[in-house]
C-alpha cells in the first residue's frame, strides 16, 4: 500500500436519513470505514438498528448515499449487497432451524449453487462442487468449535452455539465487510472470548469488521476506531479514550450508566 495516499474507504455513508411515521430515526448520518475493525456505539434509541437496516438493505433510505467498495448501493436489494460482499449478522441469533448446522453453512457459502435445472441435469458436477463446499464448511465449523454439532438441526442448538453459528456463516461467506449486530448480547463471558477470537481471525484474514456493540469493554479491546451515534447522527469518531473525555459523548450516554 502506498504510504502517501490511503486506500479508499471500503464503506462510505453520506447524508443518510430515514424517518418512520414522523420520527427521524437517522438524520444526515455520515462516516467512512477505513480501519480493520471499527466499532459503532451509542445509547439506546440512537438509531443504530435503523442504521444497520439501511446498510444491509432491509430499509431504504429517504435521503443520502451509501458506497461500498466503490459501488453505489443505496437502493440495492439486500441479497445483491450480500453478493457484493457485505454480510451482516442479527442481534437475536437467527438460523435456518430445520437445516443442519452443516447445511446452514452450505447455504451461506458463496459457491452455493441454487440453479434449478442444474440440480436436475448436472448432478455429477454438483456433487463434486458440493464436496468442496462441505470440506470448506467443515473446516470453518472446526475452527469455530461446532464440528461436533455439524449434523444436528440448527434449531436444537443452545443460545451460545447459535451465536457461533452466526459467526461461522459470516466467516464462510468470506465477505469484504461484515456487520456484526451485537454479537456478544446474551452470551456468557466464557463464550465472549471465543467470539472475540473469531472476530479477530476474520479481521486478520482480510475482512473489514464493523461491530455494533453495547459491551464497551469488548469494543475497547477489539476496535481500531469507534464511531459514536446519538439521535440518529454521528457525534464523534475516535478511540474510546477520546470518547470518554468528550463531553458530548458523555452527555449522550448520561443516565444509562454504561460509560
Amino acid at each position: 500500500m502506498n504510504s502517501v495516499s490511503e486506500a479508499p474507504p471500503i464503506l462510505e455513508v453520506m447524508g443518510l436519513s430515514k424517518a418512520f411515521g414522523g420520527v427521524q430515526a437517522v438524520h444526515d448520518c455520515r462516516f467512512e470505514i477505513t480501519q480493520r475493525v471499527t466499532g459503532i456505539i451509542g445509547p439506546n434509541g440512537a438509531g443504530k438498528s435503523t442504521l444497520i437496516g439501511l446498510l444491509s438493505g432491509t430499509l431504504l433510505a429517504d435521503a443520502g448515499r451509501i458506497c461500498f467498495g466503490g459501488n453505489e448501493i443505496t437502493r440495492m436489494a439486500p441479497h445483491r449487497r450480500s453478493q457484493l460482499g457485505l454480510t451482516r449478522t442479527f442481534q437475536i441469533s437467527r438460523q435456518f432451524h430445520t437445516l443442519s448446522v452443516l447445511e446452514n453453512l452450505l447455504v451461506a457459502s458463496p459457491d452455493a449453487d441454487d440453479r434449478l435445472i442444474g440440480a436436475i441435469v448436472l448432478r455429477r458436477q454438483m456433487k463434486r462442487r458440493d464436496r468442496e463446499s462441505v470440506k470448506r464448511s467443515l473446516q470453518v465449523l472446526e475452527d469455530v468449535g461446532l464440528y461436533a454439532k455439524r449434523d444436528d438441526r440448527a434449531g436444537e442448538l443452545s443460545g451460545g452455539q447459535m451465536r457461533l453459528l452466526e459467526i461461522a456463516r459470516a466467516i464462510i461467506r468470506q465477505p469484504k465487510l461484515v456487520l456484526f449486530d451485537e454479537p456478544t448480547a446474551g452470551v456468557n463471558p466464557v463464550l465472549i472470548e471465543r467470539v472475540e477470537e473469531q472476530l479477530r481471525n476474520m479481521a486478520e484474514s482480510g475482512t473489514t469488521v464493523l461491530l455494533v456493540e453495547h459491551n464497551l469493554k469488548v469494543v475497547e479491546r477489539m476496535c481500531d476506531s469507534v464511531i459514536v451515534v446519538a439521535n440518529g447522527s454521528v457525534i464523534a469518531v475516535g478511540s474510546m479514550e477520546e470518547h470518554r473525555a468528550n463531553d458530548e459523548v458523555v452527555k449522550a450516554y448520561l443516565g444509562t450508566g454504561e460509560a
Binding site: 438493505g57 441479497h79 442479527f90 435456518f96 430445520t98 458463496p110 461467506r173
Partner: peptide, 14 residues
Amino acid sequence: RSVRDDSDLAEAMG
C-alpha cells in the same frame, strides 16, 4: 428450505 425457514436471513446470505 432456507428461504422457508427464514427469508430475511436467506436474503442476508445472498
